[in-house]
C-alpha cells in the first residue's frame, strides 16, 4: 500500500521515454479502483477501529452531530486483561482454531474417497458438497434442533444409550465443542472440494511411475500425492484458519454466546459489547476487534511471507 503514493509521484516525473513511463503507470492505473476500494473499505476501517479503541463511547452523536466519546488511552485494553468473559472468548477461539483443523484430514479423506469414476459420482460429490452451499444460519438451526433437549435427535440418542439425555447447548463445558462440530460440517465440504480440484491436477505419470516403483497406500499418499497437493493444502489451511477466527454466525444462531457466556468467541463478544442491545460500548468492542485483528495478523503475515518467498524463489 505504501506504493500507492508512487502513483502521484510518478506522474510529474520528467519522462525519459514515453514508452517506459506508460509501462510504469499502466499497472497502477489498472490497480487504482481496487486500491481505492481496499483503502476505503479495509484500511480506513482498521485505522478507525484502532483509534476508537482508545475511547469510551456509546455510539451516539449529540443533536449537533458532535462525537460524544471520551479519550481514555489504554484503559479498554487494561480492562480486557481482567475481563473473565474476554478470557473465555479467547480460549474458545483457540479451541475453534485447533479443532477446525480437523477439516483438513477429513476433507482430504473424503476427496480421495470421492475421486473415482463410478456411476453417479457427480451426485455423491454434490451431496457431500451440499452443507457448504446452504447458509451457515441454516446449518446452525439444523444443529440446534439436532442438539435440542427433549426432542432433538442427539439428545434422544444419548438418552437411549446412557439413560440420561445430554443437552449439549445447555452444558457450559460441551457447548463450544457442539458448535464447532456444526461448523466443521460445511468446512469439511469446502476443504473436500479444494482437494478434489487439486486431485484433478495430480500428474498421472508420476502416480504411474511410483506404482512401478512399488509405492502404494499411505506411502503413495504421503510421498507422491500430498506433495503435489501442496497448493490446495495451503489454500485449505488459510480458509480454515480464517473460518475458525471469524466464527460468528453459528455462535449467534445456536446459543447467542450462552449458557452464561461460555460459548462466546471474540467476534461474538465484540458484537455483544459494541452493537448488541446490551453494552453499546463502541470503544471496548473496538479493542476486542483490535485483539482479534492482531491474532489474525499473525496468520495473515505468515501466509503473505510464504507466498512472497515462493514467488521470489521461482
Amino acid at each position: 500500500m505504501a506504493n500507492a503514493t508512487d502513483t502521484v509521484a510518478a506522474a510529474p516525473m520528467p519522462r525519459a521515454s514515453g514508452r517506459w513511463n506508460q509501462r510504469k503507470i499502466a499497472p497502477w492505473l489498472f490497480l487504482a479502483p481496487g486500491l481505492f476500494m481496499f483503502a476505503v473499505y479495509v484500511l480506513w476501517p482498521i485505522v478507525q477501529s484502532i483509534s476508537l479503541s482508545f475511547y469510551d463511547w456509546n455510539g451516539l452523536y449529540n443533536r449537533d452531530g458532535e462525537f460524544t466519546g471520551r479519550f481514555i488511552g489504554l484503559q479498554n485494553y487494561r480492562e480486557l486483561g481482567s475481563d473473565p468473559a474476554f478470557e473465555i472468548s479467547l480460549w474458545n477461539n483457540l479451541k475453534w482454531l485447533v479443532l477446525y483443523m480437523l477439516a483438513l484430514p477429513i476433507g482430504l479423506f473424503l476427496s480421495i474417497f470421492l475421486n473415482q469414476t463410478v456411476r453417479g459420482i457427480r451426485l455423491y460429490k454434490s451431496l457431500f458438497f451440499f452443507p457448504f452451499v446452504i447458509s451457515q444460519v441454516v446449518v446452525g438451526l439444523i444443529f440446534a434442533w439436532f442438539y435440542a433437549p427433549n426432542f432433538g435427535l442427539f439428545y434422544l440418542l444419548t438418552e437411549w444409550i446412557t439413560g440420561d439425555g445430554t443437552a449439549i447447548l445447555a452444558d457450559p463445558d460441551l457447548v463450544t465443542y457442539g458448535i464447532i462440530a456444526a461448523g466443521l460440517w460445511p468446512q469439511i465440504a469446502y476443504v473436500m472440494i479444494l482437494y478434489l480440484t487439486g486431485l484433478n491436477n495430480v500428474a498421472p505419470d508420476q502416480i504411474e511411475a511410483a506404482r512401478l516403483d512399488g509405492a502404494k497406500g499411505w506411502k503413495m499418499l504421503w510421498y507422491v500425492v500430498l506433495p503435489q497437493l501442496r497448493p490446495a493444502t495451503f489454500i485449505a489451511v488459510i480458509v480454515t484458519v480464517i473460518g475458525a477466527l471469524r466464527s460468528f454466525d453459528l455462535v449467534s444462531i445456536m446459543t447467542s454466546g450462552g449458557p452464561f457466556g461460555s460459548s462466546r468467541v471474540l467476534s461474538f463478544y465484540m458484537y455483544e459489547m459494541a452493537l448488541g442491545e446490551i453494552g453499546l460500548r463502541m470503544g471496548y468492542g473496538a479493542a476486542i476487534a483490535v485483539v482479534l485483528f492482531a491474532i489474525m495478523m499473525i496468520f495473515i503475515s505468515g501466509f503473505i511471507w510464504k507466498m512472497w518467498r515462493d514467488e521470489t524463489q521461482r
Binding site: 442438539y147 435440542a148 433437549p149 443437552a167 447447548l169 445447555a170 446459543t255 450462552g258 449458557p259
Partner: peptide, 11 residues
C-alpha cells in the same frame, strides 16, 4: 426445568 439454558422461552 433441566436444560433450560438451551430452551427458548416459547419452547
Amino acid at each position: 426445568t433441566e436444560n433450560h439454558a438451551a430452551i427458548d422461552w416459547q419452547d
